[in-house]
Design a protein around this nucleic acid. Structure first.
Length: 143
DNA sequence: CCGGTGACTGCCC
DNA sequence: TGGGCAGCCACCG
């Protein structure tokens, strides 16, 4: 979500992406981002799911979906953290289908009542924040 | 300092 | 509906 820039016309890419010249993002800001992300994940209601991109948005870090995955991967204290409610924008679990991690996450979601159809969750129904609500606001308020 | 790697995404074909 | 690819950016060796 939080759509990316429009990539006007495919361009070649120089493999190695620009690397930060200014060493930044020292440990402190990194921890801050991680904290924001974990706080966002904790907000996802039981029985609902959110995408990496949406979690990033809620955390105030638009377009940092990959960072969300990185943080969750490095976060040990999985206890008390509904990490399993985070799935990808395609409504699918981001672990290899059939892997232990995949099954573990899927089982936890199904225990909360989340339904999988053809390996995917209907984000219109289980996604959080609720998109339909945003659409309503958009249709009612603007102008 | 550099290149490779993702629990990612949106766009194109 | 599905695969490929370009952006993206923090982390790792």
């Amino acid at each position: 979500m939080a759509a990316g820039k429009k990539k006007a016309g495919r361009k070649r890419k120089g493999v190695a992406t620009r690397r930060r010249t200014t060493t930044r993002a020292d440990a402190s800001s990194a921890n801050d981002n991680a904290g924001r992300i974990l706080a966002a994940v904790r907000k996802i209601p039981r029985g609902r799911v959110s995408t990496y991109g949406d979690v990033a948005d809620v955390a105030g870090l638009p377009r940092r979906a990959r960072l969300v995955g990185t943080v969750l991967r490095q976060t040990p204290g999985t206890r008390d953290l509904p990490w399993f409610r985070v799935i990808n924008s395609g409504g699918r679990i981001s672990f290899p289908a059939g892997s232990d991690a995949y099954l573990r996450q899927r089982r936890k979601l199904e225990d909360e009542g989340v339904v999988f159809i053809s390996g995917r969750v209907d984000l219109k129904r289980y996604g959080w924040p609720d998109r339909a609500q945003h659409l309503d606001e958009f249709l009612w308020k603007p102008r």
